[in-house]
């Protein structure tokens, strides 16, 4: 809270304001990529998890690409609106889109205007394992309790919107442990899940670590299981699904993509810039603050591989669970 840093911040702010104006004119003369604003089109609104991710990732990329980067929210239809918009733009590298499981679900359901092979995954920025959480002072003391109870009667599981990644997580979990069909109660955001979990209105919630960090720390919420291969360093006592006796690894991954047809050199330029930006301390702090490891970041190759696997898995899961629309 030093005076100097405020001044610096304000000065920086002014510079950032003046930068695009001055820089824009300068770079236009070069006629190279990028020479105008890059848009990243997101499937949800400002202030949400994916919005925050995109802004953090773009922060330093502006410097290395010497151009303005705008995050453009285009919510609607689980990524359909965003994909419609991106599809309507020229594939010249100036329109990037966020890429989340939600997009894949829409593509798998045939609701998206583009096919899976038109996606060119660019980079991954967060690899946020899904967790099942229970109330700290509730009737469950761990995942074994939950599984036992879930086999006896339908339990109330809360997650975000129906047909989305949380729903798939919940239903997959139930299937894997052989429990009774749960009562899935959708909520609009992680905060609502936290409140209702503590309030006793739901018994289990599908959440990510960052969404309930303060409550876990204070003991009001207990992380029962992490659906990943390894335990999270911030939650050493929380067993993995494997520890608990079933195999289920689901993460909320967030990354970016462009559409096929974008020139290769531009794809490479974008990839390099974003990777560099995410390896910077500002982004790294954001990751660790959300309980995520630096390994959340993945380059084009690794991300593409994961997306392909994920797509197949989502298709299979949707069919298996009877969720295909």
């Amino acid at each position: 809270m030093k005076r100097r840093s405020i001044l610096r911040g304000a000065a920086l702010g002014l510079l950032v304001l003046a930068g695009p104006m001055a820089g824009g004119a300068e770079v236009m003369a070069q006629d190279s990529f990028p020479s105008k604003t890059i848009e990243i089109v997101n499937l949800s609104g400002a202030g949400g998890g994916s919005d925050i991710f995109l802004r953090m990732a773009a922060l330093r990329a502006r410097k290395s690409l010497k151009t303005d980067i705008q995050v453009l929210p285009k919510p609607g239809g689980l990524g359909v609106n965003a994909m419609n918009y991106v599809n309507g733009k020229p594939r010249d590298g100036y329109t990037v889109m966020s890429l989340l499981p939600g997009h894949l679900i829409s593509i798998a359901n045939g609701k998206a205007p583009i096919g899976f092979d038109e996606l060119v995954p660019l980079v991954r920025g967060t690899d946020d394992p899904q967790l099942l959480m229970v109330a700290g002072n509730g009737s469950f003391t761990g995942i074994t309790d939950v599984i036992a109870e879930a086999k006896r009667r339908p339990i109330k599981i809360g997650g975000t919107h129906v047909g989305g990644i949380d729903h798939i997580t919940a239903v997959s979990f139930i299937k894997k442990v052989g429990a009774q069909n749960p009562i899935y109660i959708p909520f609009k955001s992680g905060s609502e899940l936290v409140t209702n979990l503590i309030g006793g209105n739901i018994e289990v919630a599908v959440l990510n670590f960052g969404e309930a960090e303060s409550q876990i720390e204070s003991g009001e919420i207990q992380a029962a299981v992490v659906l990943a291969k390894d335990r999270m360093s911030v939650l050493p006592d929380t067993p993995t699904s494997h520890d608990a006796g079933f195999d289920l690894n689901i993460s909320l991954v967030r990354g970016m993509a462009v559409l096929k047809g974008t020139p290769e050199d531009r794809i490479a330029a974008l990839e390099t810039a974003f990777l560099k930006s995410m390896n910077h301390s500002v982004y790294q702090n954001y990751l660790s603050g959300s309980g995520l490891a630096p390994s959340s970041i993945a380059d084009r190759q690794a991300w593409s591989a994961q997306i392909s696997d994920m797509y197949v898995s989502i298709q299979d899961t949707l069919k298996e669970l009877g969720m295909a629309q």
Binding site: M21, G23, G24, M28, K36, T37, L72
Partner: peptide, 13 residues
């Protein structure tokens, strides 16, 4: 502010 700029796209950064 994001606004439809149409023919004036790119002006003003």
């Amino acid at each position: 502010t994001p606004l439809p700029l149409g023919l004036l796209e790119g002006l003003g950064g």
